[in-house]
Nucleic acid binder design. Structure first.
Lengths: 196, 196
DNA sequence: CAGCTGACAGATTTCAATATCTGTCAGCTG
DNA sequence: CAGCTGACAGATATTGAAATCTGTCAGCTG
């Protein structure tokens, strides 16, 4: 039995929901399962989340925010912009690839969740392209990057051009042998385009 | 009733199969349906295609070959390589977008088929990147493009970097308003990388 | 006798009855 | 009385029996 003594918080419900999703998968994870895992009635879960969809959305947001957090440090680092750009994209790729490779079923679960929660995903992507924009801005200011079409537009183009290495729809191909070489080839091309 | 007088050929079976797929969708299209559409018994269909999977694979190949054919003309054209590159990628994007937009259900059907037939899709992609390689080679020879990492590697990088504008997994986003600007931004970046 | 048919076995899909889940709320409990 | 429970109505999912489909092949037909 789960600890019934502690008070029920949104945080504890989210943790239990992640565990239930991990165990049962997205199709079979029910609110009743979450309540059972917490040793409460399912009515109590609805006190913190209005609907099952809202609960799943919150779990999705938590998951995506973890990735954003990992990358924020690279944006803030005091290094030359080209190295930061390469590091940022390589870290994003490595993080996604690790998650997809280590636990494919859990990754598939999160792919279902992101498919359900377009708004949360759009906000996440806006967050990521915002981080990229700051790196591009730093590059233009320092003179390392050519001005081009404006930092925001360039950052978005960089994000789109590297989709193959962070978009979950390509997850299957991240295990293929040539993928590292493919990533390097695209990165080299893009860096060449940016240089002043 | 369909014309029973004509002899049954692989070609006629493929046409009927496309029609059945269009009408019933990939999940409900059966070999019996195809046979009925042709006014023959389903045993006759198995005389030309060993399995249902082989029949669907042949339909997939036919469909993909049509796109390849459209693009081959641009590769052969006698124009400057940068214009040919832009035209080739823009035409690929436009063709995919048109197919996805005009008949979304049929496009969804073909997405299912391509998902089933990895080998045929890989051959199609090898064909497309081969075409791109020839354009890049022409550019390097004429001095318009910098040599870079070799035409094959560069062509593959260009194909990967523009995935957002031809990979079916992005089909939903091809109807969004900013998509043309996104395409132009990525193209401009890539062309900048190529210029000598 | 080349090409087609149609009956067949085993695999797969459909459908309707049955069970479970979602979201609400009146009332219990500490 | 704030927070939780558990019964409930309607929606959704599961299940297993019946229907259909796939792939084969012996025999028919022009």
């Amino acid at each position: 039995m789960a600890p019934t003594s502690e008070i029920l918080t949104a945080e504890r419900i989210l943790e239990a929901t992640e565990e239930v999703l991990r165990r049962h998968g997205p199709a079979k994870a029910t609110v009743v399962d979450v309540a059972r895992a917490l040793g409460v009635s399912h009515g109590s879960v609805y006190r913190h989340f209005r609907t099952k969809a809202a609960l799943r959305e919150a779990v999705t947001k938590r998951w995506l925010d973890r990735t954003s957090g990992e990358l924020a440090g690279i944006v803030a680092a005091d290094r030359d912009p080209e190295a930061r750009l390469r590091d940022w994209l390589a870290t994003l790729f490595a993080a996604k690839r690790r998650k997809a490779g280590e636990d494919p079923e859990l990754f598939a679960t999160y792919m279902v969740l992101t498919g359900e929660n377009g708004t949360v995903v759009r906000e996440h992507i806006a967050d990521l392209t915002g981080q990229l924009t700051r790196i591009v801005e730093a590059g233009v200011e320092s003179g390392a990057f050519a001005a081009g079409a404006g930092p925001g537009t360039t950052a978005l183009a960089l994000f789109h051009a590297t989709g193959r290495f962070h978009d979950p729809c390509y997850a299957r191909e991240w295990e293929e042998p040539g993928i590292e070489a493919d990533f390097t080839a695209v990165m080299d091309l893009l860096v060449r385009a940016l240089r002043a």
